[in-house]
Design a protein around this nucleic acid. Sequence first.
DNA 1: TAGATTGTTAATCGATTAACAATC
DNA 2: TAGATTGTTAATCGATTAACAATC
Lengths: 211, 211
Amino acid sequence: MISEKTIGRLTLYRRILNDLIREGSDSLRSHELAKLAGVSAAQVRRDLMVVGYEGSPKRGYESLKLLEGIRGTLDEPGGQKMAVIGVGNLGRALLAYFTGRRPGLAMAAAFDKDPARTGRVIHGCHCYHMDELERVIEEEDIRVAVLAVPAVAAQQVADKLVRCGISGILNFAPVPVQASQHVYLENIDLTMSLEKVAYFARDAKAAGITA
Amino acid sequence: MISEKTIGRLTLYRRILNDLIREGSDSLRSHELAKLAGVSAAQVRRDLMVVGYEGSPKRGYESLKLLEGIRGTLDEPGGQKMAVIGVGNLGRALLAYFTGRRPGLAMAAAFDKDPARTGRVIHGCHCYHMDELERVIEEEDIRVAVLAVPAVAAQQVADKLVRCGISGILNFAPVPVQASQHVYLENIDLTMSLEKVAYFARDAKAAGITA
DNA sequence: TAGATTGTTAATCGATTAACAATC
DNA sequence: TAGATTGTTAATCGATTAACAATC
């Protein structure tokens, strides 16, 4: 079982690696990757131990083989499908943002309960009414959901998603949503993050004056 | 010095408390708040120790006084101003999302380098050209910036923001941006979060089959 | 009072980093 | 070889939780 943090960093290493390969790199050292990812070299080496490809003390890590190893660890071979639930301002932006960002993770559907928003294509993705949730998720074999509904509806919609067979939820509603143990759920609380920044900005400014 | 995590949870407690007060609650216990916030009661008690208001073993915490205490800890008395940098799909959505969400944290300006997007009002906020960044930040006394520019531009724009006197940055570009020690920077890597959910959704599904 | 809840300390837990023998 | 880098373990660090005397 690989930790959440390690998986997160692997996704970052992959992106960095893709850039390096595009620029012609054929090998790299742990400390180079560490610098670019903003972590320690020991962290990088520790993380890379899980991908099943070993570097060599002489040549470091071969870029292509390392990328292959990370892909083998992170990706579902046949690809995965996802959906966005709620196509208000944030939902539409996330739809656009996530569409085509990574091959192997396809945006297959969008849903909303407002009939004014359904029955049309938004950012290349068909928007269905919530009544069709179960049918479409089943037919399209969707496993991952991006939840962008208002806070009051979040828990209820999450429960419905779980009943429909979704096994991963990325929740943007500013309430901590609960789900069964067999469903992976990550909460991104934008308001919390903004308020944290506002608090520490104040603090940083004060520190700056004192220093 | 209060930890990042504690500050984050205090913002959550405040929101929950606001809801409870609206519903008529005048007092609450640590375990009630813990349940609603999805944390342990010990965690809540520990967090609340920093706000300078003590509960009593008999009556728990008085809702209004606790809210007052949290406000006193988190909020800058005169309020704070923020800006969004980059008004593409994501930037515009964040502009709409953060506008008016909390009194005391005002969206004062938006910026973009594309002249087609500047000189107009988006979601109630004037959009300036990047050339006006320094002047407007100074005039409006903006301290917090939400960074929603493409990855390639992120570090460069962040550096510019710091030079203009910004002391808190919420970065949405999918690269880890670096800033000086006197600037608080939080990275929200949406792609990383999505890929993590996709990975563990696969895992969760496998666990479900095995179980 | 008796009992529930508080503030607070000690124990636990998990993740990160430092260190080092093995290796090319 | 000599030296840099690897995989991996031990030490460190920080945050969370369990426990409990104090309290209303």
